[in-house]
Computed example of a mutant assay.
Amino acid sequence: MALREEKKLQTRHALIEAALTLMHEGAGFSGLSLREVARQAGLVPTGFYRHFPDMEALGLNIAAESCQTLRRMMRKVRLSAQGGAAILESVQALVVFIREQPLYFEFLARERAGGPPAVRQAIHAEIRLFVAELAADLRNWPAFHRFPVEDLAMLADLVVNTVIHLALDLLAMPNEEAEEVLIQRTTKQLRLIMLGALEWRPEKSGA
């Protein structure tokens, strides 16, 4: 990569980190100004525009980058394991991601409900992609091979929402001992969902 391109990526990342840091210190994304984000990153305001046209574009970039990274990581886990092993490894992988990138997940947790409309919509679109990818992968598992598409989507949605609750709890729980209890609880919840799905009879779904 050329030195100029590398420096451009570093500056772009500095702007993202600046916004995430300011949010962590108490501001919502809607409350951030372009000037303070640029100042936090060590730039003048005009330097911001070389990387993003406005604050909304910055928020959309953060949402896409964090969700896409997480989706790739979780899919890699699912492709390498199935059943109980996939559940445990997925939970462990999520915990690692959150501990390594807490500000990204804090952004998703806060802005999915209270962020600017475009950012909220982008986060929800990414979550829907998460559900669709999980449903597609589940269809390749022998146990769910004959499940209707809508039932697989329902199962995937239950799993993703359980994982989101784990992430929210982890963000509010710095204690490692309590973290282990939470991981065990979430793993059991996911196993319960999967075991329940195995007893599900699609032909009775309208009952």
Rank of each mutant, 00 (worst) to 15 (best):
N175R: 10
A197M: 07
L22K: 03
R75D: 12
L192H: 08
A125H: 13
G28D: 14
R120S: 03
S30E: 13
I16P: 01
A172R: 15
D157P: 07
E176Q: 12
V96A: 11
M194F: 14
G26A: 05
R50E: 10
N61W: 07
A118S: 15
M1S: 13
A153F: 09
A113D: 09
L152R: 01
H51W: 08
Y49V: 05
E177K: 06
Y104K: 02
A41F: 02
S205V: 12
I87R: 03
A41S: 02
R75G: 07
A93W: 03
L166H: 00
P53N: 06
P117R: 08
K7A: 15
V95F: 00
A143D: 14
I123D: 02
G114I: 03
H145Y: 06
Q184V: 07
A57G: 05
V44S: 12
R75F: 09
R185W: 10
L190K: 02
L22A: 04
A27C: 07
E56G: 00
G83Y: 04
F52T: 06
L20K: 08
S90R: 01
T69R: 14
L60H: 01
A135Y: 08
E177I: 09
L22S: 02
A18Y: 00
D157V: 08
L3E: 11
N175K: 05
E199L: 14
R185T: 13
R110V: 06
P102W: 00
A122M: 07
M1V: 12
A156K: 01
L168N: 10
R78D: 04
F29Y: 12
S33H: 04
R71F: 11
Q40S: 05
A2E: 12
E199I: 02
A207V: 11
E17D: 14
R39F: 10
V44T: 13
L198C: 11
I123G: 02
A85K: 10
K8E: 13
L43K: 05
M154G: 07
P142Y: 01
E36G: 04
M154I: 08
A153V: 11
E150Y: 08
L103H: 10
